[in-house]
C-alpha cells in the first residue's frame, strides 16, 4: 500500500510540474505565447473560427443548402450578406458552415492520424531492437512516397467521398508523426523516473501510457496544432478536384471549384472562399509556430 501511495504521490507531483510548465506565471508556455504578437493574433482568429464553427447553425443567416433559382448571382443584401452563388444559395451561410466542415474534417484526419501514429511510435520507441528496426523501415517506405500524390491515389481508388478522403490522408500522413513520437519515446525511456517506475514493478503498459505518453502529450498537441493549417489546405485541395467532400456540402474547396466557371464574370464567388482558406490556414500556422517557439525557448 505504501508503495502505491508513494507512486500516486509521484504522479501528482509530475502533474503539478507539468501544469506549471504551461501556466507558471512568469515563464510558462502560455505566458511566453502572449508576449509574442503573431501567435496571439493567430490565437484570436483561431478562437473566432472555432466559435463560428460551433455556432454555425445560429450565426448563418440562411440554410446553406437552400437552392433558390430565382435569386441566383445576386449581390450582397441584408438577407444574403455576401450575395448568392450560381444556384441562389447564400454565400455567407456556406462560408460559415464551411468553417465547421473544414474543422470537423481536419480534426477527423488529425485524430485518425494520431490513433495510427501514437501506438506505433510508442511501441517502436519503447521496444527498440528488431521491432523498432522493422517499424522504422516501414515508416521509411511511407516517408519515401510523395504524400499528396499517394493520398490522391488512395482516395481515387476508394472513390470520392469525405470519409474516404479522411482515410486516405491519415493513412499516408501518419508516418512522419510515428517517427517523431518514437524519438520522443526513446528520449523518455532513458529518463531516471522511468527507471524508477521499472524498479517499482510497473508493467510495460503502465510505463508506456502513464509515464511516457503523459510526458510527451504536450509536444504532440503542439505538433497537431502546427499541422491543422496544412490539413485544412489539403482538404480544400481534395474537395476542389472532386475527391473530397461531395456537393452540395458547404465546403471551401467545393465552393472554389464550383465558382471556377465564374472566374471572369463573378470573381467574388471564388475570392470569398479563397480568403477564408488563407485566413484560417495562416491563423493556425501562426499559432502553431508561436507554440513551438515558446516550448523550444
Amino acid at each position: 500500500m505504501d508503495e502505491d501511495d508513494e507512486h500516486m504521490m509521484q504522479i501528482k507531483i509530475q502533474a503539478i510540474k507539468k501544469l506549471n510548465v504551461w501556466f507558471r506565471s512568469s515563464n510558462g508556455i502560455i505566458n511566453r505565447i502572449f508576449t509574442q504578437k503573431a501567435p496571439v493574433f493567430g490565437l484570436v482568429i483561431v478562437a473566432l473560427i472555432i466559435f463560428i464553427a460551433i455556432a454555425a447553425s445560429v450565426i448563418a443567416p440562411n440554410d446553406p443548402l437552400k437552392v433558390n433559382m430565382s435569386m441566383r448571382l445576386e449581390g450582397p443584401s441584408s438577407l444574403y450578406w455576401l450575395g448568392t452563388d450560381n444556384l441562389g444559395r447564400c454565400i455567407a451561410s456556406r462560408l460559415i458552415w464551411g468553417a465547421r466542415m473544414s474543422l470537423i474534417y481536419s480534426l477527423c484526419v488529425l485524430g485518425l492520424m494520431m490513433v495510427i501514429s501514437i501506438p506505433i511510435g510508442l511501441l517502436s520507441g519503447y521496444a527498440g531492437g528488431r521491432v523498432d528496426t522493422f517499424i522504422m523501415r516501414v515508416t521509411d517506405i511511407f516517408l519515401s512516397l510523395p504524400t499528396f500524390l499517394m493520398a490522391l491515389a488512395i482516395a481515387g481508388t476508394l472513390g470520392p467521398s469525405a470519409k474516404n478522403m479522411i482515410i486516405a490522408m491519415a493513412s499516408v500522413w501518419w508516418s512522419s508523426y510515428a517517427r517523431i513520437i518514437r524519438g520522443m519515446a526513446m528520449q523518455m525511456k532513458q529518463q531516471d523516473f522511468i527507471l524508477a517506475a521499472k524498479a517499482a514493478a510497473c508493467t510495460h503498459s503502465q510505463i508506456i501510457f502513464r509515464h511516457i505518453l503523459r510526458n510527451i502529450a504536450s509536444p504532440i498537441i503542439i505538433m497537431a496544432t502546427l499541422e491543422i493549417g496544412s490539413i485544412i489546405l489539403a482538404i480544400a485541395s481534395f474537395s476542389f478536384i472532386g475527391l473530397g467532400a461531395q456537393p452540395p456540402t458547404p465546403e471551401w474547396g467545393i465552393m472554389l471549384s464550383d465558382s471556377k466557371e465564374f472566374i471572369q464574370t463573378q470573381p467574388q464567388l471564388m475570392i470569398y472562399p479563397g480568403i477564408a482558406i488563407i485566413i484560417t490556414v495562416m491563423a493556425f500556422n501562426l499559432l502553431g509556430e508561436g507554440l513551438k517557439n515558446a516550448i523550444q525557448d
Partner: peptide, 8 residues
C-alpha cells in the same frame, strides 16, 4: 516551421 509560412 518555415515550411508552413512558405505554404501560406
Amino acid at each position: 516551421m518555415k515550411k508552413k509560412c512558405i505554404w501560406a
